[in-house]
Design a protein around this nucleic acid. Structure first.
Lengths: 154, 154
DNA sequence: ACAGATCAGTTATGCGCATAACTATTATCC
DNA sequence: GGATAATAGTTATGCGCATAACTGATCTGT
């Protein structure tokens, strides 16, 4: 691949990151959320209570980030933490009623954002887009390869 | 669009952002660069000396970010700043010899990253990917709409 | 020609996410 | 069963990028 094409692709990904995040921030701000927090709420809404290491895995971010996210959402009254009965190291995180209501609002925003994002693209392209993006992500996912290395090393 | 699809898309964009940036960071680290700085070097390599507001526009980030980026790259000896002769407010930013050499290295990394990113995708998909991503970016670009509003208001 | 608006750039501050280093608990293996 | 390794989580710190508020220079309109 020549540099022109490579740069077009890398730059496009970089700009999409910045703009999509900025747009998400603008939409989430009225709910009192910052981007990143919505992912935690949606994950809890999807799978129910979870410990932080599971959230870290699901959200694709590191444990210290989860610590901060949970702390802020807890301060906002949207989630609750309680000790895990079977493991005194772990905390179980779950939605409060307020958090569930907030998650529902986020879902609507999320649909609006997705529709806004793919406006003007043929339906066929839109349909295959998540798969393409997931492939790209997998190709550069040092987290996954790190974990596989760890697994195989055992 | 239902929530499942919307979430798949938004989540895919979010994860791609995190992972692509992380991978870029890993590749750039040996050169002593942090992600974001490479874009400035490449822009200067592409278009020659420019003032910071042009860089801000080209990189899609805000002026304070450019201030910090230029300061760090200047401290590293990769760029140089001199006052613009025709406008005493502006600084002209340009590559040093070291910066030009570094930009060439970055170009190679950039090609490698792009190839790694699109591995396993059909060539046809790869060819239209930059266009698709640019469309997505345009759809959520609050910067552009902000600027257009400003223009039309005059 | 001069007052007011616009523009280039900086400083201060805040958020998200990362890594490194640490504590406390649990699992493993001789 | 007791040393050792692995795991859950936290704190400290640093980077990128954002907004808000500011200074100084340039442009505009009357």
């Amino acid at each position: 691949m020549d540099f022109e094409q490579a740069d077009a692709l890398n730059q496009a990904i970089r700009l999409l990151s910045l703009r999509h995040r900025a747009r998400a921030a603008a939409l989430l701000a009225p709910l009192g959320l910052h981007p990143g927090q919505e992912a935690l709420l949606l994950e809890l809404a999807r799978t129910g209570p979870a410990i932080q290491s599971q959230l870290s895995e699901a959200l694709g971010c590191e444990p210290p980030s989860v610590t901060l996210m949970t702390r802020k959402l807890e301060a906002g009254g949207h989630i609750r933490r309680r000790p895990a009965p079977s493991d005194r190291r772990a905390s179980i995180v779950e939605l409060t009623d307020s958090g569930r209501a907030l998650a529902d609002q986020v879902k609507h925003l999320w649909c609006a954002l997705a529709e806004e994002t793919v406006a003007g693209l043929p339906a066929e392209t839109v349909a295959e887009l998540p798969g393409i993006l997931t492939t790209l992500t997998g190709n550069v996912d040092t987290r996954r390869s790190r974990r596989l290395q760890g697994d195989s090393a055992v």
